[in-house]
Design a protein around this nucleic acid. Structure first.
Length: 522
RNA sequence: GCAGCAUUCGUCUAGCGGUUAGGACACCGCCCUUUCACGGCGGUAACACGGGUUCGAUUCCCGUAUGCUGUACCA
């Protein structure tokens, strides 16, 4: 039998990272076995429908590199792929489960309870301290009414639901590909509503009917479905259909161990994208949340994942989502990013932050130079401010530490060397600087730190010589002269900074140069 | 409450009766070095607990504890 799997989201909003992981495993499993991956939209809950969500989902999968073989957009032989377009199918099948004589001998039955009936039943159960399950023997339904009263009720238009008649006298068992044999006593299973009073099916019915007609061979979904799987098994049995293989994936969790939620940070795929995480990193990281290849290889392309994936190696316990590890992985992919593509991403980040730049080539070079120092493209923006505008703010302590009268003498004489460097390349700049230092017996440390702080305004940054080259001779000379001339006219102010060691917010004293900073237009 | 599922370093995990319990992230040192980052080297750190089974249990079985999920006319 050929492998056919599906990812079946409900269009209630953006794609959750857990959804991405589930879809990924479905995709990997399908591709690994030369099978088919289906996208099905489960919109049976009309009250939660969100306009445009379906389109958003599809776009996010496209970016991530997950391609569905069949779905609402690409179509397929076993469609339609949106449940609201399959409405009649569910009702028709639910009715097949009901006893035609309306004597309650079917696999399902009509029930006429109002919301208040159900609520009072639960109230009584709560008080009695027993499990809240539908008490089919004492409620308003086909079983208690008998065929005549049931027929009358239906004909006179009393709203009804159709419930699954769960056999209470036996166990329901099935094999889960990741958890092994699962056995649940029938008496623990509730008489699930199959058709709601609005005529729509519940997830349980629609899911089984669709999986059957779409010939799904493996149901790979989140572990939150494990407790309701017996209901699905019962439905397959009632219809006399072949039961697919089940594989329930471990849940993604918050740092405190609860089910992953927005309480602890971003959980939506588009939020990760906006924060500068790359699709490759997201996919690679998600793949390893609950699965591993059993080798020591950590970085995988989608093709390699397909090759290496197997359900047997899926872990059983839930996994806490570690943002730091994702960042580390993203940094790896960032370093691999081709110059042009990185340039484009950087450009859109700059535009989003209102930074203007002159040429595509320049920002490509800036990104290339700095990508090894950051973990996401977004970080490139604050990291590279001095590549776009002369710095005017300096950390007071740091400047004083590296800048004194001796420095001024050295820098002043270096200005002559600088103007004569030709060609103005990082190699030549480095050579000239070193010659200058040797000729004047100046130790490296006495010079490069003041040079860096004067040119960039920061203590950390990328290779200084390349930075000087990219900025260009004019800008560097201008910056050095500004400090030289206006050093004593700087004004102090206090601002908030972040302690790099502790991550705490601390007060930092800054000094400001009394100039209007020029923009770099290289 | 009831049911199901789970439990190896802080985190992701390897392990499928005999291992100095391995790797990666994070953290801490050292090296490289113009700062930072990368990289290299090293370090701290784990089998939840109690019973069995066995010559021997991290590994198999049973309890306990803890956590998670479910317990809807939501998915």
């Amino acid at each position: 039998m050929s492998v056919r799997v599906r990812f079946a989201p409900s269009p209630t909003g953006f794609l959750h990272i857990g959804g991405l992981r589930t879809a990924l495993y479905n995709y990997l499993f399908a591709k690994k076995h030369g099978g088919t991956c289906v996208l099905r939209i489960e919109d049976t809950d009309r009250t939660r429908f969100v306009e445009g969500a379906q389109e958003g989902l599809i776009e996010e999968f496209k970016q991530a590199g997950i391609m569905f073989d069949e779905g609402p957009v690409q179509g397929g032989a076993l469609g339609p792929y949106v449940q609201s377009d399959r409405f009649d199918l569910y009702k028709e099948h639910a009715k097949k489960l009901v006893d035609p004589n309306l004597e309650g001998n079917g696999f399902a039955y009509y029930a006429f309870d109002t919301e208040e009936d159900i609520e009072s039943m639960r109230e009584r159960q709560r008080n009695a301290g027993i499990a809240p399950r539908y008490m089919r023997g004492e409620m308003n339904n086909e079983l208690t009414y008998g065929s005549e009263k049931t027929r009358e009720a239906i004909e006179s238009g009393v709203p009804y639901v159709i419930r699954l008649k769960v056999p209470h006298n036996r166990d329901v068992r099935f094999v889960d590909l990741v958890h092994g044999a699962i056995i649940i006593a029938g008496r623990e299973i509730d008489d699930q509503v199959l058709i709601k009073s609005d005529g729509f099916p519940t997830y349980h019915l629609a899911n089984v009917v669709d999986d059957h007609f779409m010939q799904i061979s493996h149901v790979i979904r989140g572990e939150e479905w494990l407790p309701s799987t017996p209901k699905h098994v019962l439905l397959y049995e009632a219809f006399g259909w072949e039961i697919p293989q089940f594989a329930h994936l471990p849940l993604l969790k918050n740092p405190d161990g609860s089910k992953m939620s927005k309480r602890f940070g971003d959980v939506l795929v588009h939020q990760f994208r906006e924060r500068g995480f790359m699709p490759e990193a997201l996919i690679n990281y998600c793949a390893f949340l609950g699965w591993n290849p059993g080798t020591e290889q950590e970085f995988f392309t989608m093709e390699e994942l397909v090759e290496a994936f197997s359900l047997e190696r899926v872990h059983k316990a839930g996994a806490i989502f570690d943002y730091k590890r994702l960042a580390w992985m993203n940094a790896h992919y960032l370093r691999l990013e081709p110059k042009e593509r990185l340039g484009e991403e950087f450009a859109s980040m700059l535009e989003a932050n209102g930074v203007t730049y002159a040429s595509k080539e320049y920002i490509e070079n800036v990104a290339q130079l700095m990508k090894e120092r950051v973990q996401t493209v977004n970080e490139l923006v604050p990291f590279s401010t001095y590549m776009f505008k002369d710095p005017i703010h300096f950390e007071k302590d740091y400047l004083e530490q590296h800048w004194n009268e001796e420095t001024e003498t050295i820098v002043t004489s270096f200005l002559d060397v600088l103007s004569s460097i030709e060609p103005f390349t990082n190699e030549q700049i480095e050579t000239s600087v070193k010659e200058f230092l040797t000729n004047n017996s100046i130790p490296m440390k006495k010079f490069v730190h003041p040079l860096r702080v004067a040119i960039t305004g920061k203590k950390i940054g990328a290779d200084l010589y390349s930075t000087i080259q990219l900025l260009g001779k004019n800008a560097v000379v201008r910056r050095l002269k500004s400090i030289l001339e206006l050093r004593n006219q700087m004004t102090e102010f206090v601002t908030e900074g972040i302690d790099p060691k502790t991550g705490e917010t601390i007060e930092v004293t800054m000094v400001e140069l009394p100039i209007t900073p020029l923009e770099i237009h290289n």
